[in-house]
Amino acid sequence: MNSVLNYFSTSIWTIVSFILVIFLILIPLFSFLSYSFFTVDGTDIIHEFSLFNFKEFFIDEIYIRTFVRTIFLAIIVMSCCIMLGYPVAFFLARYAGRYKYVILLMLIIPLFMSYIIKIYMMRSILGYSGLINKVLAMMGFIEKPLEFFLWNQNSVIITLVVILLPLIIIPTFTSLDKIPKNIVEASFDLGCKPFQAFRYIIFPISFPGLIVGSIFVFILALGDFVTPQLVGGTSGFTYGKIIYSNFGMAFNWPFGAALASILLFVSVIIILLTNYLTNKLKT
């Protein structure tokens, strides 16, 4: 009797989780995908199947160019995050001793802050009369404000790196932190010099964590539209911003949906590809 009840309650939860997935994820996703096959006439959406939006994407080269540029931007952001985040996670996990969780918490706190506020904060640091320019001017290095930091691609990259950095530190730290001390000792014992221990033992074990963080950063940087909007100016134009403007300003939902579908498709491909490569690397 008990086992029947047990079975019953387990299967109920299975059904509930399926229903949740279907209603909260699959149906919205499907309706959104289906929009990409509609067209607009003025402000009216014509609910008829058409590949017009996708044709438009491939014909007008600005879209592909922006898309490729945004992918590069995301790759740069991801690389910067890896280069800054991995060492931080490494030193935190291996050398910060008992304060490591306190420091980690401090690194995570920005994640609880509003995204918009962080971008504005970055604007006040990078801007013409921002912190960096003020300090440099005060110290007499520059006479007029540097324009390198604001209203261009650089400012988008810097802002995204600052905002997304914790996302790479957390999973990397977690994977580094769970490496038992004696595994590293064992590698020394078998003749590894410190760098070899890192190369053959520590890095490979922490690699999956780094990959998870990198994918987070890449996908979020790829689809971001608020950062270019607020600090990107006219030259910091990204693919996410085009999607946003199609929904918001141009009222061309079908085209926006088509662009978003392409982004989704590419993102999924990238995730699957990384997964495949990581698995292959393991064996």
């Binding site: 004696n182 595994i183 064992a186 014992d189 033992i201 490979p204 074990i205």
Partner: peptide
């Protein structure tokens, strides 16, 4: 060479 108490085999 050491044989550790909990073996310390490389999980990777």
């Amino acid at each position: 060479n050491t044989v550790f108490q909990d073996y310390a085999l490389f999980p990777n």
